[in-house]
Nucleic acid binder design. Structure first.
Length: 426
RNA sequence: GCCCCCAUCGUCUAGAGGCCUAGGACGCUAGGUUCUCAUCCUAGUAACACCGGUUCGAAUCCGGUUGGGGGUGCCA
């Protein structure tokens, strides 16, 4: 039997990380099993399911590399099939029409539960059962003639030949209904796996109030798709050993549903940030180059390489590249607190003037010479090198922290360094 | 209210009766490296919710309590 599973989002304009994790688990499961990963767009809500909302889903999947194996099914095109199934259930005695009364809406079609206890095996939660008394009949076609979610979902899963339904925990109770309908329609019962929710620090469902909650936000904020992918996989699953940073092919090889956790997991932004930095470290040189070029267009390639070498261990997310602005422009921001402390201190001006003159006289403007020059000056003045280093750093970069001073000066170059020192003196 | 599910460090987790004086990761703390920041290295911090069983032996099995989550629509 070929595994066929699906991601079935209802496009609402943004894709929640919980939904995306369900998509990721479906994708991994299909790839691991050598099966098919399918997409069904549940766009029956005409109000919210705009073409833009559908595009948002497709873009999020593309960003995370979740490729589908067949053309997506659009549920809005399936209305006739849904209604035909309802008719079939009606004529086989598995459904009946009823005016639930009071509202004056008219007759709806209800599915008739079998009147016996039901059970199914969830791959993650184990055997789940429910007494007949707790299994009520339910509407499958509204009195206005529109099919309800449960009907559409089941009919389309049959049509798509779904063998494994991997979805959110909020569908656990629905599964008894779905299994009953599947049986009434004479269809195979797929395997079910219900994924626990992603929660916030309070244990409540993770929402936009808790930080980036939608895939698009992670993308906009410059995080890496592979980092989000890896982190989300690990949120509720582990390979069984101590490995955490796992490349995609490793995840495909290792992923199994029975290792998925049965309890909710908190999204930890700190750990995600760490994961992102792990992927940043591993990002190819070309990617670093491209990212710097985007922000500092026109910069020389060799110059960029040197800057990247100095900045790489200091950047944990792409937007932080903006902090390297002093390598490229003269209007870099200045940390006022640090400037007040280091540049306006008594005697600071004289020290900067001395270092300026010393550096102007250097025959070679390289890190080793810059260090030797600064140390010699410090010694002749009877002060610690740090007392020179800090003011020079602020004068040249505007920042209290940053790369090795001498290497930074070497990269920025004699002309700019001397000019910036002069500016600081005057 | 009723139904279903769940329960190991602050967080993500390893653990399927003896390998557990409970391991890893993030975070945090301390130390090392260092001109700063970051990286890197080392060490430390911290958990089997509770109460009963079963067993020679329980984080692991069973029951209860408590706590948490989900569901309870002519929403999806």
């Amino acid at each position: 039997m070929t595994v066929r599973c699906r991601f079935a989002p209802s496009p609402t304009g943004s894709v929640h990380i919980g939904n995306m994790r369900a998509a990721i688990y479906n994708w991994l499961f299909a790839r691991h099993a050598g099966g098919r990963f399918l997409l069904r767009v549940e766009d029956t809500d005409r109000e919210r399911s705009t073409p833009e909302a559908v595009q948002t889903v497709l873009r999020a999947m593309e960003w995370l590399g979740l490729n589908v194996d067949e053309e997506p099914m659009y549920q809005s095109t399936r209305r006739a099939a849904h209604l035909a199934a309802a008719e079939k259930l009606l004529s086989s005695g598995h459904a009946y029409k009823l005016d639930k009364g009071g509202t004056g809406k008219g007759e709806a079609t209800l599915f008739k539960m079998p009147g016996r206890d039901m059970a199914f095996r969830d791959v993650i939660k184990g055997d789940l059962r429910k007494d007949a008394a707790n299994l009520q009949d339910f509407v499958i076609v509204r009195s206005d003639g529109n099919p309800v979610f449960h009907l559409a979902n089941v009919v389309d899963d049959i049509e798509m030949g779904i063998t494994h339904v991997i979805r959110g925990d909020d569908h656990v109770e629905n599964t008894f209904r779905h299994v009953a309908m599947l049986e009434a329609l004479g269809a195979e019962i797929p395997a079910y796996a219900h994924l626990p929710m992603i929660t916030n620090a309070q244990g409540k469902p993770y929402s936009k109030r808790d930080g980036a909650a939608f895939v698009g936000e992670f993308q906009e904020q410059g995080y890496l798709a592979e980092a989000l992918f890896n982190y989300l996989v690990l949120l509720g699953w582990s390979p069984g050993d101590d490995r955490e940073v796992l490349m995609r092919d490793e995840l495909v090889a290792l992923f199994t549903l029975d290792r998925v956790q049965a309890k909710p997991a908190q999204f930890d932004m700190q750990k995600f940030l760490w994961m992102n930095s792990e992927y940043l470290k591993r990002a190819p040189a070309g990617e670093w180059m491209r990212r710097f070029r985007d922000i500092y267009p026109g910069a020389d390639e060799q110059y960029l390489e040197k800057v990247i070498e100095l900045m790489k261990p200091r950047i944990k997310a792409w937007p932080e590249i903006a902090g390297a602005v002093y390598f490229f422009r003269e209007d870099f921001p200045v940390d006022q607190e640090a400037a007040n402390k280091r540049l306006k201190a008594p005697g600071a001006r004289e020290l900067l003037a001395a270092i300026h003159d010393g550096y102007q006289a250097l025959t070679s403007f390289d890190a080793a010479s810059l260090e030797a020059g600064l140390r010699a000056l410090a010694e002749s003045k009877g002060i610690k090198p740090a007392e020179l280093i800090h003011p020079v750093r602020i004068a040249v970069s505007g920042q209290p922290g940053g790369p090795s001073l001498y290497h930074m000066l070497e990269v920025i170059g004699r002309d700019k360094v001397l000019a910036r020192l002069n500016t600081a003196i005057s």
